[in-house]
């Protein structure tokens, strides 16, 4: 489970870094798509992980 959580963290990091690179290179349309598209499943996933930790 720890490996899975680490893997999920890496996925979040990859998304953020990729989006940042596209912003730096002024490809705002691609960056926006990456952020929005990954936020939709990414947010509930992060929420569920945090809730479990609280329990």
């Amino acid at each position: 489970m720890k490996i899975t959580k680490l893997y999920i963290c890496i996925l979040y990091l990859v998304t953020i870094i990729c989006s940042l690179f596209f912003i730096i290179d002024e490809h705002y349309n691609i960056a926006t798509l990456l952020i929005l598209g990954n936020a939709i499943p990414g947010y509930p996933l992060a929420k569920s992980l945090l809730e479990k930790n609280e329990n």
Partner: peptide, 23 residues
């Protein structure tokens, strides 16, 4: 436990990051 359904969806959407190749 991780919600496998959301986890699977997230894995799918992260694949969009493949386009970083062009940078």
């Amino acid at each position: 436990m991780i919600d496998e359904q959301i986890y699977r969806r997230f894995n799918h959407t992260v694949a969009a990051c493949f386009v970083i190749y062009f940078l």
